[in-house]
Write a protein that binds this DNA or RNA. Structure first.
Lengths: 337, 337
DNA sequence: CTGAAAGCGCTAACAA
DNA sequence: TTGTTAGCGCTTTCAG
């Protein structure tokens, strides 16, 4: 009703005018409210409300150098685990007043590097990536730009980036030990692509270092791939048929359990199965899956706190090792004599 | 090596200086390269590269009024279905040169309204939401700001926002008809919360309008909730025990199948199960789930194109109805005599 | 405690 | 084809 066709969004000057103060004062009300007289502040706030004014993020950014958002790079959102990390990251970042821009990489380091650049270009104040295998371009970018960046799903104090994660080797060993403690010795390993997934790589290397008694079976990281990989595993020569399978992720274990159900292979009577992840669904599988719990929800929140702290207070966060725990459920038992 | 401690990021002027041209020319090289002489352009591009220069998104935004990102509001990222929509949305938006900022609402309209405001404040050029039940504040915000916003998972030509989705009622009916065609009459419905999920609501209402022969069983939308709801359903009086269950989502159907496996209820011999969603895992369940395929991947991409078109060319997109299809697999059969 | 004024990095008339 | 020059909406000295 005021002015003529009061079209466009109000700006600082409009507010200042309406409140009868200078733009500087309005700016202060936003940023350092204590430095403004109470009555003046009230008048300004009234004007802001009345004009439905909210500061332009772009204008703020250009002046303060702060964009208040960070980027996250994940291989995919289709996988339960990354989706949960992102969900927790987002909600926790919100408590720090930061937004999240997600970008998916398909697990390809080159794509990651390129998207990281894109995120930097649009003003990301920090980056959250997962795992430890990144392209040289990526590291170069981080180094050159001095952009705060942390790595998740992974714990390694000496790593270039601060890491917030768990000990993948310990997780693998925890699962394996559970099997050997039960008396299994013919153990197969069902794992995802080693080339594009460093977390899997770490787990597999841990196993290889520990014993050479294992047989390895690759599978793609989709439910279809898991079933196919499981089928190949179960088809292997009966003589060498393992008494237990250790899966590198619950997705793989799920496929294996399905495949066992399909073939009438009784778990754990005929075959014991352990895994690492502990997805929400894993406790409800039939049989309930024995698996190593990886604290991805907590990890998402911790990563948010870590990157937020770095971005806000310029202090590089400490590495964080999160606890893992073996959840013994119904998919494992001693081998039949 | 140039200047002294060449600390900070180069800006337009630096590039202009280095290339021996004016800032306007550099700007043109960015925005309308054809309007710059080839040789000049080459010189400018060399300078850009040499100085590692990339334009400041904030400064661009403040001038052009374009931030080149849109926001998406989803109830949660934990659910396979939303994660996939987001994944496809993100990758398709990237082809339009747009970024995606995600915000989760927990399915709460008030939170959605508040986060929508936050997205608007940080400069989102458009919004993608799912479903049709939103807070008044949300609609008011959209109306007042004239912000391009579309709704997904839902098709309704008369809706306030353009919709890109499928026909939830038809999906429910398609599943139900499959059951009745097989000869089932004692049919139970396993559904999620009606209050916070309008898509489920639409499906349930479609069923109610179609017949009053059904019994309804609620469950929470987690795998644990699904199993619990399924257990309650299976515990209901044996006399009225249904011969078939129609689940409002594959998550629920998965819980029901698990619960049947746990109890030795043979599917489909003792109980037929249909659902709607068709998650990647559904075809691999034991038995493979008969379900109505909802094209969420395509939907994510279409939504991206729609909002991108609106944002870029200021033209409100047309509503889009996506095809659904019944995937007949192994979880349904005629009732036993 | 408040205001005037100088930018931030870029775009977009308008001139040349 | 290129340069000059206003701004965009805000923050931030520096005075008062």
């Amino acid at each position: 009703m005021q002015k003529e066709a009061a079209r466009k969004r109000a700006n600082l000057r409009d507010v200042a005018e309406a409140a009868g103060v200078s733009v500087a004062t309005v700016s202060r009300v936003m940023n350092t409210p204590d430095s403004v007289a109470k009555t003046t502040r009230a008048r300004v706030e009234a004007a802001m409300a009345q004009l439905h004014w909210t500061p332009s993020a772009a204008a703020r950014a250009i002046n303060s150098g702060r964009t208040r958002f960070v980027g996250a790079l994940v291989p995919t959102l289709d996988a339960d685990i990354f989706a949960r990390v992102i969900a927790n990251l987002e909600s926790q970042l919100a408590t720090h007043g930061l937004s999240l821009v997600v970008a998916t990489t398909g697990g390809l380091p080159q794509v990651e590097a390129q998207k990281a650049k894109a995120l930097l270009d649009i003003g990301a104040e920090g980056l959250v990536v997962s795992g430890a295998s990144h392209a040289d371009d990526f590291y170069a970018l981080i180094a050159r730009s001095r952009l705060p960046a942390i790595s998740t799903s992974w714990y390694e104090p000496e790593f270039v980036l601060p890491t917030v994660g768990y000990d993948n080797k310990a997780a693998a060993l925890l699962a394996l030990t559970h099997l050997t403690d039960l008396g299994h010795s013919r153990i197969a390993v069902l794992h995802g692509p080693l080339a594009t997934n460093d977390r899997t790589g770490a787990r597999v290397r841990a196993l290889q270092a520990h014993t050479d008694q294992l047989s390895y079976h690759p599978a793609e990281m989709t439910i279809a791939g898991a079933c196919a990989g499981a089928a190949r595993l179960l088809d292997s020569a009966p003589a060498t048929r393992p008494t237990a399978v250790m899966c590198m992720s619950d997705l793989l274990a799920t496929g294996l359990i399905y495949e066992c159900q399909r073939r009438g292979v009784q778990v754990p009577r005929d075959l014991s199965i352990v895994s690492t992840d502990d997805l929400p669904a894993s406790a409800h599988l039939v049989p309930a899956l024995t698996t190593v719990h990886l604290p991805v929800d907590i990890m998402g929140r911790r990563a948010a706190d870590a990157i937020a702290g770095w971005v806000e207070h310029h202090q590089r966060p400490a590495d964080q090792l999160l606890d893992i725990a073996l959840m013994v459920r119904d998919s494992t038992a001693p081998p039949r004599p």
